[in-house]
Write a protein that binds this DNA or RNA. Structure first.
Length: 256
DNA sequence: ATGGCTTGAGTGTCAAGA
């Protein structure tokens, strides 16, 4: 089973890239973040023609998350249960016995800001919900744009970014608390080249100079982590005309 | 120099992203 995550930064703009990528990679499931549209503007028809069912938790202008899958999706949940939040950042479904949770964590803007406080509260709520969700679904994968670089090796310039948004200790603590639930960072289960990133700033030729961060992640519960055969970042779509600023992250689970 | 691009909303220019 091949599952993936991609922050597309507007699905309307990126649909051709997404369709090309689905055709060449053929994942069983793809989690999307920042669709930036309500359900009315969601491209269900072309995705279905490409062989994918879709579920969407949409919002105008900002946020918006979706899961595309080749198989039927069951027990769909939108938003974090019990957490009052108008922002559409979570959608979950069961696909071939695997609980797939697609999340777009808040950016946080600046350490100490109101948005930063919201980010930390949001991450705590997600963690609380996942603790229960993992009891119900032993085979669980959390995929998405975490907006957290977990370690200095996930940052192109760790000195410049030290203590800054996406790299602060409280955010990294929140990431570790997710791992403490019994989840494993699929990417770090394998040998990776140094300076592997999943996001590069549009400005300053960030991609060409590899001035990036690894903030998009796939976390796997033990039964899935034990069968995880590969995890990589696909930089190819970032090289196209009008790319998303994020690249897809893909993992392969053997025997599913 | 808190800038630099990109998107959406909307038609002038700003918020937000990371």
């Amino acid at each position: 089973m091949k599952i993936a995550t991609w922050n597309v930064n507007s699905l309307k703009v990126r649909l051709p890239h997404v369709l090309d990528w689905l055709a060449s990679v053929r994942p069983d499931a793809l989690c999307l973040q920042e669709t930036k549209t309500e359900d009315g503007g969601f491209p269900f028809a072309p995705l279905e023609a490409a062989g994918y069912c879709a579920i969407h938790n949409g919002q105008k202008t900002y946020n918006g998350v979706a899961i595309l899958a080749r198989a039927e999706m069951q027990d769909v949940v939108r938003d974090i249960p019990g957490f009052d939040d108008p922002q559409k950042r979570v959608i979950a479904a069961t696909i071939d016995g695997v609980r797939v949770i697609c999340a777009y964590m808040p950016n946080g803007q600046a350490v100490g800001s109101d948005k930063y406080e919201y980010k930390l509260k949001w991450l705590a709520a997600l963690t609380g919900w996942l603790r229960e969700e993992m009891q119900r679904y032993p085979q669980l994968a959390l995929l998405g744009d975490f907006n957290i670089a977990p370690d200095d090796r996930d940052v192109h310039d760790p000195v410049a970014w030290q203590g800054q948004i996406l790299c602060s200790e409280a955010e990294r603590d929140a990431f570790r608390k997710l791992l403490d639930l019994g989840l494993a960072d699929a990417f770090r289960r394998f040998e990776q080249t140094e300076k592997s990133f999943s996001w590069w700033d549009y400005r300053m030729m960030g991609f060409r100079r590899n001035l990036g961060l690894r903030i998009d992640h796939i976390l796997l519960s033990s039964p899935l982590a034990n069968r995880c055969a590969a995890c990589s970042i696909d930089k190819a779509p970032r090289k196209l005309e009008r790319p998303s600023d994020h690249a897809p992250v893909v993992t392969e689970i053997a025997g599913l």
